[in-house]
Simulated assay, not measured.
Amino acid sequence: MDSQTVLLVFIAVGLDGVAGLAGGVLSERWLQRRLPALVAFAAGTLLCAVFLEVLPEAVSALGDSAFTWAFGSFVALALLEWALGHHHHQAEAAAGHVHGHAHGHTHAHGAPVLPTALLASDALHNIGDGAAVAAAFLVSPNAGFATAFAVIIHELPQEVGDYALLRAAGWSRAKSLVALGAVQLTAAVGAGAVLVGTRYLPSLQGTVLAIAGGSFLYIGAVDLLPELRRGPDSRQRVVGFLCGLLLIGGLHFVERFLGAHH
């Protein structure tokens, strides 16, 4: 592990943190127009990164046991979201009701989402994102860039929704942004743990990638992908999804092409 890899990891984590403040920075009108395409784009980047970069590298490191870790991660994330009663990635509904229309800010049983539960869930999610980015950069720069880009893009709709939920709970704009900014720092904790841990336990890298693959698959397929079928602007969503696939897929095949010629 060289200093350049460490620098790239923390630059990516820093950009992820900036993305977490998008809900309070971007205009609501722009978000309402572009969020459907952004959610679809995030689904495309995540799913493409899972199948072309993250899971193949995990299998290369761990063998078939990578699928066991990925499946366990998928199930654990599903149970966690059900237990908390809040899907982070229902961001479109939340972002459309920033000023407190209650039906965009309740969980499955109709009770308001508690800010503490929301932030705790977000912190756990960010730790996993930071760990995944670090593990991917340890494999190769291309795997790191693909994973980091997918993480940052899917962070945008998630954090827009979280910002809307905090505002709906009565938090001020400043308090909401400070809380989300503090929670974003947990991504650095996950990244640092992987960078240090792999020095003493090299197999940790493959395990983290497998866990990330399962969680990314859940987020992309369960939370984000269904958004393509909702609302009148289906063309915008499909185009966003295909652009996400083409971007990560293009990076993957360019790397393979250059590698074959070297």
Rank of each mutant, 00 (worst) to 15 (best):
L15F: 13
I127Q: 03
A78S: 12
W30M: 13
V39T: 15
G100W: 07
D129C: 13
S176H: 10
A123S: 11
L246G: 12
F241E: 03
A132L: 13
F51V: 11
A22G: 08
G44C: 06
A12I: 05
R229G: 11
A191S: 01
L35R: 10
F216Q: 07
V54F: 11
E57W: 01
D223Y: 00
V183W: 10
G85C: 07
V208L: 13
H105E: 10
A76I: 02
E28Q: 15
A164F: 12
L165E: 14
H101S: 00
G128S: 09
Y163S: 02
W30V: 12
E255C: 00
R256C: 05
L8H: 12
G24C: 02
A146V: 12
A93W: 08
A188M: 01
H88R: 04
I219M: 05
R229V: 10
A187V: 03
H97R: 11
P157K: 05
L185K: 04
A102G: 08
D64F: 10
R34C: 13
V9M: 08
C48D: 07
L225W: 02
E81W: 02
A143M: 11
R237N: 06
L177G: 00
V98P: 05
V13M: 07
V183C: 14
G250L: 07
V189H: 06
G244M: 05
A221P: 00
A108Y: 15
Y218N: 02
A49M: 09
L195T: 10
A182P: 04
L21V: 01
L166A: 04
E227N: 11
G190A: 05
A117Y: 08
